[in-house]
Protein backbone atom coordinates (compact mmCIF):
# COMPACT_ATOMS: atom_id res chain seq x y z
CA UNK A 1 0.00 0.00 0.00
CA UNK A 2 1.25 3.46 -0.83
CA UNK A 3 1.79 6.18 1.72
CA UNK A 4 -1.43 7.09 3.53
CA UNK A 5 -2.93 10.52 2.81
CA UNK A 6 -3.45 11.19 6.49
CA UNK A 7 -1.53 9.76 9.39
CA UNK A 8 -2.47 10.65 12.93
CA UNK A 9 0.08 9.49 15.51
CA UNK A 10 -0.58 9.49 19.26
CA UNK A 11 -2.59 12.67 18.96
CA UNK A 12 -3.36 14.34 22.27
CA UNK A 13 -5.61 17.41 22.48
CA UNK A 14 -5.70 19.25 25.77
CA UNK A 15 -7.93 21.96 27.18
CA UNK A 16 -6.40 23.73 30.14
CA UNK A 17 -9.07 24.80 32.61
CA UNK A 18 -9.07 26.21 36.09
CA UNK A 19 -9.67 22.75 37.51
CA UNK A 20 -6.92 21.02 35.63
CA UNK A 21 -6.16 19.90 32.12
CA UNK A 22 -8.85 18.04 30.18
CA UNK A 23 -7.95 15.59 27.43
CA UNK A 24 -10.79 15.33 24.91
CA UNK A 25 -8.46 13.40 22.58
CA UNK A 26 -5.98 11.08 24.27
CA UNK A 27 -3.41 9.21 22.21
CA UNK A 28 -5.31 8.56 18.99
CA UNK A 29 -3.52 6.99 15.99
CA UNK A 30 -4.84 6.00 12.59
CA UNK A 31 -4.16 6.25 8.86
CA UNK A 32 -6.44 7.00 5.95
CA UNK A 33 -5.40 5.93 2.46
CA UNK A 34 -6.39 7.58 -0.81
CA UNK A 35 -9.86 6.51 -1.88
CA UNK A 36 -10.67 5.19 1.56
CA UNK A 37 -13.42 6.26 3.94
CA UNK A 38 -12.57 5.95 7.60
CA UNK A 39 -15.61 6.18 9.81
CA UNK A 40 -15.02 7.68 13.24
CA UNK A 41 -17.85 6.78 15.55
CA UNK A 42 -18.67 7.33 19.20
CA UNK A 43 -21.05 9.05 21.57
CA UNK A 44 -21.20 12.82 21.93
CA UNK A 45 -18.10 14.00 23.72
CA UNK A 46 -16.04 10.96 22.72
CA UNK A 47 -13.59 13.28 20.96
CA UNK A 48 -14.43 12.39 17.38
CA UNK A 49 -15.18 15.92 16.14
CA UNK A 50 -12.28 17.27 18.18
CA UNK A 51 -9.95 14.90 16.32
CA UNK A 52 -11.21 16.23 13.00
CA UNK A 53 -10.82 19.83 14.09
CA UNK A 54 -7.32 19.13 15.35
CA UNK A 55 -6.32 17.69 11.98
CA UNK A 56 -7.48 20.73 10.02
CA UNK A 57 -6.20 23.16 12.68
CA UNK A 58 -9.59 24.56 13.66
CA UNK A 59 -9.47 23.83 17.37
CA UNK A 60 -11.20 26.55 19.34
CA UNK A 61 -8.98 28.08 21.92
CA UNK A 62 -7.95 27.17 24.53
CA UNK A 63 -7.96 23.61 23.13
CA UNK A 64 -4.60 22.72 21.58
CA UNK A 65 -2.61 19.81 20.25
CA UNK A 66 -0.44 18.86 23.23
CA UNK A 67 1.53 16.05 21.62
CA UNK A 68 1.50 13.60 18.76
CA UNK A 69 1.75 14.12 15.04
CA UNK A 70 -0.54 14.80 12.12
CA UNK A 71 1.02 13.93 8.77
CA UNK A 72 -0.64 14.96 5.53
CA UNK A 73 0.95 13.03 2.66
CA UNK A 74 3.95 12.46 4.87
CA UNK A 75 4.38 16.11 5.81
CA UNK A 76 3.87 17.11 9.45
CA UNK A 77 1.13 19.75 9.66
CA UNK A 78 0.25 19.81 13.35
CA UNK A 79 2.58 22.70 14.07
CA UNK A 80 1.66 24.86 11.09
CA UNK A 81 0.03 28.21 11.70
CA UNK A 82 -1.15 31.29 9.85
CA UNK A 83 -0.62 31.45 6.09
CA UNK A 84 1.05 28.04 5.81
CA UNK A 85 -1.97 26.35 7.39
CA UNK A 86 -4.41 28.48 5.40
CA UNK A 87 -2.82 27.37 2.13
CA UNK A 88 -3.37 23.73 3.06
CA UNK A 89 -6.99 24.22 3.99
CA UNK A 90 -9.28 23.97 1.03
CA UNK A 91 -6.38 23.09 -1.28
CA UNK A 92 -5.18 19.87 0.37
CA UNK A 93 -7.77 19.21 3.04
CA UNK A 94 -11.40 20.20 3.11
CA UNK A 95 -14.08 20.04 5.74
CA UNK A 96 -17.81 19.43 5.59
CA UNK A 97 -19.91 20.55 8.52
CA UNK A 98 -23.00 19.16 10.11
CA UNK A 99 -25.63 21.73 9.33
CA UNK A 100 -25.89 22.85 5.70
CA UNK A 101 -28.35 25.55 6.76
CA UNK A 102 -25.70 27.43 8.70
CA UNK A 103 -22.48 26.55 6.92
CA UNK A 104 -23.18 28.72 3.88
CA UNK A 105 -22.98 32.48 4.04
CA UNK A 106 -26.57 33.64 3.50
CA UNK A 107 -25.59 36.92 1.82
CA UNK A 108 -23.40 35.57 -0.98
CA UNK A 109 -24.51 33.48 -3.96
CA UNK A 110 -23.20 29.94 -4.07
CA UNK A 111 -21.27 30.97 -7.18
CA UNK A 112 -19.56 33.79 -5.28
CA UNK A 113 -18.56 31.42 -2.52
CA UNK A 114 -17.29 28.81 -4.97
CA UNK A 115 -15.29 31.13 -7.22
CA UNK A 116 -13.77 32.88 -4.24
CA UNK A 117 -12.51 29.56 -2.90
CA UNK A 118 -11.30 28.41 -6.30
CA UNK A 119 -9.45 31.63 -7.01
CA UNK A 120 -7.89 31.59 -3.58
CA UNK A 121 -6.15 28.30 -4.28
CA UNK A 122 -5.86 27.89 -8.03
CA UNK A 123 -4.37 30.33 -10.48
CA UNK A 124 -7.44 30.82 -12.65
CA UNK A 125 -9.10 33.81 -14.27
CA UNK A 126 -12.55 34.90 -13.17
CA UNK A 127 -14.27 33.22 -16.10
CA UNK A 128 -12.25 29.99 -15.72
CA UNK A 129 -13.12 29.94 -12.02
CA UNK A 130 -16.76 30.46 -12.93
CA UNK A 131 -16.71 27.49 -15.31
CA UNK A 132 -15.01 25.40 -12.70
CA UNK A 133 -17.61 26.38 -10.12
CA UNK A 134 -20.35 25.23 -12.50
CA UNK A 135 -18.51 21.96 -13.03
CA UNK A 136 -18.18 21.51 -9.26
CA UNK A 137 -21.93 21.99 -8.75
CA UNK A 138 -22.60 19.66 -11.63
CA UNK A 139 -20.37 17.01 -10.12
CA UNK A 140 -22.22 16.94 -6.82
CA UNK A 141 -25.50 16.50 -8.66
CA UNK A 142 -27.06 19.97 -8.64
CA UNK A 143 -29.41 20.01 -11.62
CA UNK A 144 -29.14 22.95 -14.04
CA UNK A 145 -25.93 24.08 -12.35
CA UNK A 146 -25.36 26.89 -14.86
CA UNK A 147 -28.62 28.55 -13.86
CA UNK A 148 -28.43 27.72 -10.18
CA UNK A 149 -24.96 29.15 -9.67
CA UNK A 150 -26.32 32.66 -9.11
CA UNK A 151 -28.80 31.48 -6.49
CA UNK A 152 -28.47 32.26 -2.83
CA UNK A 153 -28.21 29.46 -0.26
CA UNK A 154 -31.77 30.00 0.98
CA UNK A 155 -33.05 29.13 -2.47
CA UNK A 156 -31.84 25.53 -2.09
CA UNK A 157 -33.36 22.70 -0.04
CA UNK A 158 -31.40 21.16 2.84
CA UNK A 159 -30.06 18.22 0.83
CA UNK A 160 -29.11 20.48 -2.09
CA UNK A 161 -27.37 22.83 0.30
CA UNK A 162 -25.30 19.97 1.67
CA UNK A 163 -24.35 19.16 -1.92
CA UNK A 164 -23.25 22.77 -2.34
CA UNK A 165 -21.21 22.46 0.85
CA UNK A 166 -19.54 19.33 -0.52
CA UNK A 167 -18.85 21.12 -3.81
CA UNK A 168 -17.26 23.97 -1.83
CA UNK A 169 -15.10 21.59 0.19
CA UNK A 170 -13.97 19.78 -2.96
CA UNK A 171 -13.69 22.61 -5.48
CA UNK A 172 -9.94 23.09 -5.03
CA UNK A 173 -9.40 19.33 -5.20
CA UNK A 174 -8.09 18.49 -1.74
CA UNK A 175 -6.72 15.01 -1.08
CA UNK A 176 -8.43 14.73 2.30
CA UNK A 177 -11.99 15.50 3.34
CA UNK A 178 -13.09 15.65 6.94
CA UNK A 179 -16.84 15.21 7.05
CA UNK A 180 -18.15 16.10 10.51
CA UNK A 181 -21.63 14.59 10.91
CA UNK A 182 -22.48 15.46 7.29
CA UNK A 183 -25.86 13.72 7.35
CA UNK A 184 -27.06 14.31 10.90
CA UNK A 185 -29.14 17.37 10.06
CA UNK A 186 -30.75 15.81 6.99
CA UNK A 187 -33.85 13.72 6.31
CA UNK A 188 -33.18 9.99 6.18
CA UNK A 189 -33.93 9.72 2.47
CA UNK A 190 -31.57 12.61 1.74
CA UNK A 191 -28.93 11.09 4.03
CA UNK A 192 -28.61 8.08 1.76
CA UNK A 193 -28.11 10.34 -1.27
CA UNK A 194 -25.41 12.34 0.44
CA UNK A 195 -23.63 9.16 1.58
CA UNK A 196 -23.79 7.77 -1.94
CA UNK A 197 -22.37 11.06 -3.26
CA UNK A 198 -19.50 11.00 -0.77
CA UNK A 199 -18.70 7.41 -1.69
CA UNK A 200 -18.77 8.19 -5.39
CA UNK A 201 -16.50 11.22 -5.06
CA UNK A 202 -14.16 9.26 -2.84
CA UNK A 203 -13.85 6.44 -5.40
CA UNK A 204 -13.68 8.62 -8.51
CA UNK A 205 -11.24 11.15 -7.19
CA UNK A 206 -9.27 9.00 -4.81
CA UNK A 207 -9.97 11.36 -1.95
CA UNK A 208 -9.34 10.16 1.58
CA UNK A 209 -12.41 10.77 3.72
CA UNK A 210 -12.65 10.96 7.47
CA UNK A 211 -16.34 10.49 8.21
CA UNK A 212 -17.22 11.57 11.73
CA UNK A 213 -20.64 10.44 12.90
CA UNK A 214 -22.50 8.93 15.81
CA UNK A 215 -24.71 6.94 13.45
CA UNK A 216 -23.62 3.30 13.10
CA UNK A 217 -25.97 2.93 10.15
CA UNK A 218 -24.12 5.62 8.21
CA UNK A 219 -20.79 4.00 9.07
CA UNK A 220 -21.94 0.55 8.00
CA UNK A 221 -23.15 1.95 4.70
CA UNK A 222 -20.31 4.28 3.83
CA UNK A 223 -17.07 3.44 5.58
CA UNK A 224 -14.30 1.06 4.59
CA UNK A 225 -12.77 1.01 8.02
CA UNK A 226 -14.12 2.23 11.30
CA UNK A 227 -12.53 3.76 14.38
CA UNK A 228 -14.63 3.56 17.52
CA UNK A 229 -13.83 6.25 20.07
CA UNK A 230 -14.64 6.26 23.74
CA UNK A 231 -13.70 9.03 26.19
CA UNK A 232 -11.06 10.45 23.87
CA UNK A 233 -9.39 7.13 23.12
CA UNK A 234 -9.64 4.60 20.35
CA UNK A 235 -11.60 1.58 21.51
CA UNK A 236 -11.52 -0.37 18.30
CA UNK A 237 -10.15 0.11 14.80
CA UNK A 238 -10.71 -2.25 11.92
CA UNK A 239 -12.46 -3.05 8.65
CA UNK A 240 -16.08 -2.04 8.92
CA UNK A 241 -17.57 -5.48 8.19
CA UNK A 242 -15.52 -7.16 10.89
CA UNK A 243 -16.12 -4.50 13.49
CA UNK A 244 -19.84 -4.41 12.85
CA UNK A 245 -20.43 -8.17 12.81
CA UNK A 246 -17.69 -9.31 15.16
CA UNK A 247 -16.95 -6.52 17.58
CA UNK A 248 -14.07 -7.35 19.86
CA UNK A 249 -14.27 -4.43 22.26
CA UNK A 250 -17.15 -4.75 24.72
CA UNK A 251 -18.02 -1.08 24.09
CA UNK A 252 -18.31 -1.66 20.33
CA UNK A 253 -20.42 -4.73 20.99
CA UNK A 254 -22.67 -2.68 23.27
CA UNK A 255 -22.90 0.05 20.65
CA UNK A 256 -23.97 -2.48 18.03
CA UNK A 257 -26.52 -4.09 20.32
CA UNK A 258 -28.07 -0.69 20.98
CA UNK A 259 -28.35 0.25 17.31
CA UNK A 260 -31.84 -0.31 15.92
CA UNK A 261 -32.02 -2.34 12.73
CA UNK A 262 -35.30 -1.88 10.93
CA UNK A 263 -35.27 -5.30 9.26
CA UNK A 264 -34.65 -7.25 12.44
CA UNK A 265 -38.13 -6.85 13.79
CA UNK A 266 -39.20 -6.56 17.36
CA UNK A 267 -36.10 -7.53 19.30
CA UNK A 268 -35.72 -5.23 22.26
CA UNK A 269 -32.69 -2.95 22.07
CA UNK A 270 -30.00 -3.45 24.66
CA UNK A 271 -28.52 -0.52 26.49
CA UNK A 272 -25.04 0.00 27.81
CA UNK A 273 -25.50 0.69 31.52
CA UNK A 274 -24.24 4.02 32.81
CA UNK A 275 -22.90 6.97 30.82
CA UNK A 276 -19.60 7.97 29.29
CA UNK A 277 -17.43 9.62 31.94
CA UNK A 278 -17.04 13.38 31.90
CA UNK A 279 -13.70 14.64 30.71
CA UNK A 280 -12.67 15.70 34.18
CA UNK A 281 -13.48 12.30 35.66
CA UNK A 282 -12.07 9.69 33.28
CA UNK A 283 -11.32 6.64 35.42
CA UNK A 284 -7.84 5.17 35.64
CA UNK A 285 -7.07 2.11 33.56
CA UNK A 286 -9.55 1.34 30.81
CA UNK A 287 -12.00 4.28 30.63
CA UNK A 288 -14.83 1.84 29.92
CA UNK A 289 -14.32 -0.51 32.87
CA UNK A 290 -17.05 0.87 35.19
CA UNK A 291 -19.64 0.03 32.52
CA UNK A 292 -18.08 -3.20 31.34
CA UNK A 293 -19.43 -6.67 32.18
CA UNK A 294 -16.08 -8.28 31.45
CA UNK A 295 -13.98 -5.93 33.59
CA UNK A 296 -11.39 -7.51 35.85
CA UNK A 297 -8.71 -6.19 38.18
CA UNK A 298 -6.30 -5.52 35.34
CA UNK A 299 -8.78 -3.17 33.64
CA UNK A 300 -8.79 -0.85 36.64
CA UNK A 301 -5.03 -0.41 36.66
CA UNK A 302 -3.26 2.38 34.86
CA UNK A 303 -1.97 2.34 32.21
CA UNK A 304 -5.09 1.28 30.40
CA UNK A 305 -5.17 -0.87 27.29
CA UNK A 306 -4.13 0.58 23.95
CA UNK A 307 -4.48 -0.84 20.47
CA UNK A 308 -0.75 -1.44 20.27
CA UNK A 309 -0.61 -3.12 23.69
CA UNK A 310 -3.51 -5.41 22.81
CA UNK A 311 -4.25 -7.22 19.58
CA UNK A 312 -4.00 -4.12 17.35
CA UNK A 313 -7.72 -3.97 16.74
CA UNK A 314 -9.46 -3.55 20.09
CA UNK A 315 -7.98 -1.68 23.04
CA UNK A 316 -9.16 -4.32 25.50
CA UNK A 317 -7.34 -6.76 27.73
CA UNK A 318 -10.13 -9.28 27.42
CA UNK A 319 -11.57 -8.87 23.94
CA UNK A 320 -14.60 -10.82 22.79
CA UNK A 321 -13.50 -13.72 20.67
CA UNK A 322 -15.55 -15.11 17.85
CA UNK A 323 -15.37 -18.76 16.89
CA UNK A 324 -15.96 -18.34 13.19
CA UNK A 325 -13.18 -15.80 12.93
CA UNK A 326 -10.68 -18.39 11.86
CA UNK A 327 -12.64 -19.04 8.72
CA UNK A 328 -12.62 -15.40 7.63
Amino acid sequence: MSEPVLSVRDLVVEIPTRHGVLRPVDGVSYDIAAGEILGVVGESGAGKSMTGNAVIGLLDRPARIASGEVLLQGQPIHQLQGAALRKLRGRHMGMIFQDPLTSLNPLLTVGDQLTETIQEHLDLSASQAHERAIAALDEVGIPAARQRIDSYPHEFSGGMRQRVVIALALCAEPELIIADEPTTALDVSVQAQIIALLRRLCRERGVAVMLVTHDMGVIAEAADRVAVMYAGRLAELGPVREVVTQARHPYTAGLMASTPVASQGQKRLRQIPGAMPRLDAVPAGCAFHPRCERAQARCRQAPGPTLQACDGRAACWFPITHEQEATL
Binding site: I56, L58, R86, K87, L88, R89, G90, R91, G94, M95, F97, S103, L104, N105, E116, T117, E120, H121, V165, L168, A169, A172
Partner: peptide
Protein backbone atom coordinates in the same frame (compact mmCIF):
# COMPACT_ATOMS: atom_id res chain seq x y z
CA UNK B 1 -15.69 28.31 10.35
CA UNK B 2 -16.41 26.85 6.95
CA UNK B 3 -14.78 29.86 5.26
CA UNK B 4 -11.70 29.24 7.43
CA UNK B 5 -11.76 25.54 6.60
CA UNK B 6 -11.71 26.50 2.90
CA UNK B 7 -8.50 28.44 3.42
CA UNK B 8 -9.86 31.91 2.69
Amino acid sequence: RFARARGL
